Computed example of a mutant assay.
Amino acid sequence: MKFVTKAALAVAVAPLTLGVANAFAQDWQPDRPINVVVPWGAGGSTDQVIRVLTPIIGEALGQSVVVVNQPGASGATGTAEVLAAPRDGYTWTGNAIANNATYQISGLLPDTNIDDWHLYIAVAHVPVVGVPADSEFNDFGELLDAFRERGEGITVGTAGVTSSGGTAIASISQAGEFEYRMVAYDGGGPAATATAAGEVMVTTQLAAEQAELIRGGRIKGLAVLSDQPLEIAGVDPIPPITDWLPDMPLAPDYFGILVPTGVPDEVISALDAIWESDIANSETLLNYTLTNGAVLTPASGEAARAMAMPVVIEKACAALARGEAENDPSTIGIDCDTHSEIGG
């Protein structure tokens, strides 16, 4: 299934009117600021998306929604803080949904999975293989040949093993049959900046984290992890990686807000209504996606879970295949023999 097609499926939900959304939101009247913990450094794809979302949510609720960056352990440090916080509705997290769903597999957070969260997806992101502007590599084919010849002599900047960039290069290396050397940073933004500066030779972080650097001529986008070219405003389309690795498995990464289960029902009712109206109809969020090579995919509840599970399953089973899984995916209900949910 094509990336654009999968993403477009998410908008096939009829939005409520703005008035109805605000009426539901008023049922919960937060009396103090809400904290949204971003478990990555500032400037990365998660941070970008959450900083677009929080003012929209804050306006609907009539209360400040504050972004708190708390990087560490590939996002597990900040996520653990959210899980340990009181379940009063005032502490959320922002992340790629697949990260929260697979921390148990990586062993970083052995007691959590996707069903510990209320899901609010906003956008879909896709990784891009980027190199510094003065790189010796001018297309992905040249880079692929170099990976196969030089292996760990090629450095790849990512936000860590379990980040979108980390899982992207792992998947590419498996499909392309090569080795590499990862250099981890505190977020996708820092990894992209380091690549532009020539600290590393390649990055596989998300398009949103590289878009401004590509537009500014500091990074060359060699391939997008999709079977369709990626359109980023102001630059030539980035070719799909399937031009070189036609059988590589692909799945977009979905980003948004996650609220721990156990919070008061009125918190969830308010967010559900806000998501179906204010978020789904946000011109600001739409402009962000058009500028940064992302796709608007608003969804919540069971619809969000159904959207996220394909990439969750792929990420969990790929970790198992690479020998990186501390816990078998069956512990979170995933059968890697069939690449499906157990009982799903």
Rank of each mutant, 00 (worst) to 15 (best):
A280K: 11
G165S: 04
G160L: 09
S277E: 04
A21M: 03
A306N: 13
T193P: 07
V38Q: 06
A10G: 09
V82D: 06
T195L: 11
R181H: 14
V263I: 01
G78N: 08
V13L: 12
D337W: 08
D27T: 11
A196V: 03
Q70S: 12
I34K: 02
G221L: 01
D278Q: 15
V312W: 06
E276K: 11
M182F: 08
V13H: 11
Y90E: 08
P86K: 05
E324L: 12
N287H: 13
P237C: 02
S64F: 06
K2W: 15
V263P: 02
S64W: 03
A23I: 07
P249E: 13
Q205D: 14
G72R: 02
L144G: 00
P298D: 03
A80S: 15
I257D: 11
D88I: 06
V20A: 15
W244Q: 01
L320D: 12
I34R: 05
G293C: 02
A273G: 06
I114E: 11
P190M: 02
A12Q: 14
P239I: 00
L290T: 13
Y185V: 00
A98G: 11
N35S: 15
P55E: 14
V11T: 15
G62H: 08
Y185P: 05
V312M: 06
V68E: 13
V200T: 12
Y254F: 03
F147R: 05
D134H: 10
V65P: 00
P329R: 09
I56E: 15
V311A: 07
S164F: 02
L16A: 15
T167D: 10
I172N: 04
P329C: 12
L286F: 10
S277N: 11
T102W: 05
A84M: 08
G78F: 09
S300E: 12
K2P: 15
G188I: 04
Y90L: 10
A321Q: 14
P246R: 07
G43L: 04
M182C: 08
A133P: 13
A8V: 04
Q63W: 00
L109R: 01
V259N: 09
A170M: 12
A60V: 01
D116T: 05
Q29A: 14
I279F: 00
G94Y: 02
D88N: 13
P252F: 00
S282L: 07
R150T: 13
V65W: 04
S277A: 15
W40V: 12
G62D: 10
G72T: 08
S135C: 07
P298I: 02
W28M: 12
A146T: 09
E341I: 06
A14L: 10
T93Q: 13
F255N: 13
L9I: 01
L320S: 09
R148G: 08
D335F: 05
K315A: 11
G176L: 00
T284S: 13
